[in-house]
Amino acid sequence: MSEFDDDRMERLLGAAGGAFPDVNTAYAQVQGRVRHIKQRRSMIAGTAACAVLVVGGAFALGSTGQRSNLQPGDHGSLSVDASVDTQSTPATDDTSAIRPSTTTAGSGAGSNGQGTSSQPTGPSSSTAATTTPSNPATADVQTYTCAGGTITVRLAAGALELVSSQPAAGFALDTSTATATRIEFRWRSSSDDQSIRIDLIGGVPVRKV
């Protein structure tokens, strides 16, 4: 029994509290509000997921484009890569001059592949084929590949130009250099470190191991 128990106060305040509300109706209203909020939440979540996908895709495209735009006058990596792939041949060795290649770093050294009849098969013919092109867009664009990634380089007006670069799966760009006489890319993965370096020596791009 509390010192504050007071039947009269209870009656007075009980009267102020009003009649007992209808619990069933009120609970139906609560359920309706809960349902409405859940629907709104799921709609917002769906919209947000779509937005994240769109922004993520745009960001991925943007970052890819940024990596390939280290030099003015570059082309989009996808289109350039496609044009280069059509003329790529197995590499012969890493000390050769400009050489369309699909080999990976390490495997290219000392391996002598057979060129096709339309492609250079040795250092001398390769140099001749690439330094005196009638169409620079096709003849002077070369792709170099290693385990860490791929770069595409063009020889224009006696200078090297980077067309595109693309890290291999699991690798990320570490450092890059792109000058008129040297283009060097280094990619790093969690357990590996790979690089490609192309020097312009005597007007001829030469890959250094």
Partner: peptide, 12 residues
Amino acid sequence: LFRAHYARLVRA
């Protein structure tokens, strides 16, 4: 909980 407490809470 709603059925047990709603009415009294509303009146208070």
